[in-house]
Nucleic acid binder design. Structure first.
Length: 484
RNA sequence: GGCGGCGUACCCAAGUGGCUAAGGGAGAGGUCUGCAAAACCUUUAUGCAGCGGUUCAAAUCCGCUCGCCGCCUCCA
């Protein structure tokens, strides 16, 4: 298995510290507002990485944090007139609501910054003792020039950074690039006791404290959005390695951004969409498939049109599942098709091989999905060949097993077609209930029996205008929701 | 200014030295169907931003040019 490592800027063979075990940490969110689709991407990417590592039989320990104390949270509390911890609670709940719907699993440990104040203080103290940090008026800063490898992750040179720095220079810092480990709190702000007086932790120190506590001083994978490379992850490395004297994370994985009109989605540009807004219009599985249809490091241009296309392709999957189920449940015509059977057998045996090969190459979900859809066509082709019953049912059963393996990894394609269409009924705000549709189908069936084609077509058209598609089969009429 | 990335068909997108350049969406034609839909088949890049170069061989490596974007400030 190969993983692209931001630290070395190339794909590397993945070898965990302890054979068979993987310790991974991903930066979660600061809980001060609703999550947007960019947060969804990051969460889904690492969810899939975690699932795939498990699929590969690694014993995975996955840690993802919540930043629950920070300037933005304090500001939000003032705006909303509630306490800072009420803000954190509210948006943590919202985070779970969104992520649950998107099929993002819980991490094994989900630590919060405020639950690790004492660990952070201990590290800050240690850094002062070792000469890497200094106190000024109740705040503590990390001295970047004491850490000779500073800049190794973001490939930055200290002098250049200072020259190009747009950051306001804080006179109390010895070096403009120094960053806060501990911040003295102002009157009325949340604060904790520390050797330097009342204050609160700087942003970066929490990840150092929590990854060391819940994983180890050295661990395998650390990830997050590409915008965390600098300064967040660079600072984490500096303070962690200075503190422990050991290498921090070995593989750094960063996901690309979501763009709108080619520009990075961001709060300041006000060009972001919350997960909630999108879920109002699209099925969560569509969003997940859409985000995994592009390699995790590439940017993704977000648009409704793209989501509609994804919806159509997901519908292709479920339409095929319906065909398979129909075949498995009913007695279809038999035919002789040894060639088709043998060809399909070959496809079955090579599918997971290709799928794994794609995922092994830096988690190439886009390619893995390509193979999946190729396989879907093979399934349809096989069904078109009117295969002989008993053998075919065995093969289709095997196919379903393969799909469920892919499902375990991507957490897509896992529902029944019925669930899929019922969900589409809701997101597309179809005015008809399933019962209404079945009633209409029955009406139309009568008309068809009487060869009253005009009436049958009229009913079909009426439903189509509502977004409901009818498909006449030999032994009945199926309905589905129009996708795209 | 420094560092980095990207440019593949009508749209999205995989492919980073060697089989006919995956896959999805959309369009066109066909098979099937009472008619449809779905499915399948055929079709839409002799070419991968442009120009040079390296090589027996390049979308893939190198150079230049053009265009777009990101990071350097909180940010997934």
């Amino acid at each position: 298995m190969r993983i692209y490592n931001t630290l070395t800027n190339r794909k590397e063979e993945f070898i965990p510290l302890t054979s068979g075990k993987v310790m991974m940490y991903a930066c979660g969110v600061t809980v001060y507002d609703y999550c947007h689709i960019g947060h969804a991407r990051s969460a889904i990417v690492f969810d899939v990485i975690r699932r795939y590592l498990k699929y590969k039989s690694f014993d995975v320990k996955y840690v993802r944090n919540f930043t629950d104390i920070d300037d933005k949270i304090i500001n939000k509390a003032q705006q909303e007139g509630i306490t800072w911890d009420a803000v954190a609670k509210k948006y943590t709940d919202e985070y779970y609501r969104d992520m649950d719907r998107l099929g993002v699993g819980r991490a094994d440990v989900e630590p919060r910054a405020t639950e690790h104040i004492s660990e952070m203080i201990a590290i800050v103290k240690g850094l002062i003792d070792k000469g890497y940090a200094y106190e000024v008026e109740g705040s503590v800063y990390f001295a970047v020039d004491k850490f000779s490898e500073y800049g190794k992750l973001s490939k930055r040179d200290m002098e250049e950074m200072i020259a190009g720095a747009r950051v306001e220079v804080d006179e109390r810092k010895r070096n403009p690039m120094d960053f806060a480990l501990w911040k003295k709190s102002k009157e009325g702000e949340p604060s904790w006791e520390s050797p330097w007086g009342l204050g609160r932790p700087g942003w970066h120190i929490e990840c150092t404290a929590m990854s060391i506590k819940h994983l180890s001083e050295s661990f395998d994978i650390h990830g997050g959005g590409a915008d965390l490379i600098f300064p967040h992850h660079e600072n984490e490395i500096a303070q962690s390695e200075a503190f422990t004297g050991k290498p921090f994370a070995r593989y750094w994985i960063h996901n690309g951004f979501i763009t709108i009109d080619k520009e990075k989605m961001s709060k300041s540009l006000d060009n972001f969409f919350t997960i909630k807004e999108i879920l109002d219009k699209f099925d969560p599985e569509v969003i997940r498939l859409f985000l995994l249809s592009t390699h995790y490091r590439s940017p993704i241009e977000f648009s409704d049109e793209q989501l509609r296309e994804t919806e159509s392709s997901l519908d292709r999957f479920y339409s095929t599942i319906i065909r398979m189920n129909n075949f498995l449940e009913k007695d279809e015509d038999k035919g002789s098709s040894l060639d088709a059977e043998n060809t399909f057998k070959e496809r079955i045996s090579s599918f997971m091989e290709k799928f794994e090969e794609a995922m092994d190459d830096d988690f190439n979900t886009a390619l893995a999905l390509g193979h999946t859809f190729e396989f879907i066509r093979d399934v349809n082709k096989f069904l078109d060949s009117r295969p002989s019953e008993q053998k075919a049912k065995e093969l289709l059963q095997k196919t379903k097993e393969l799909f469920s393996e892919a499902i375990d990894v991507l957490n897509i394609f896992g529902r029944t077609p019925q669930e899929w269409y019922l969900s589409l009924m809701v997101t597309k705000k179809i005015g008809f209930s399933e019962k209404d549709i079945i009633e209409k189908i029955r009406e139309r069936q009568d008309a068809r029996q009487n060869k009253d084609w005009a009436r049958a077509d009229m009913i079909r058209k009426e439903l189509e205008e509502k977004g409901i598609i009818l498909e006449d089969k030999k032994d009945g009429t199926d309905w589905k929701i129009k996708s795209g």
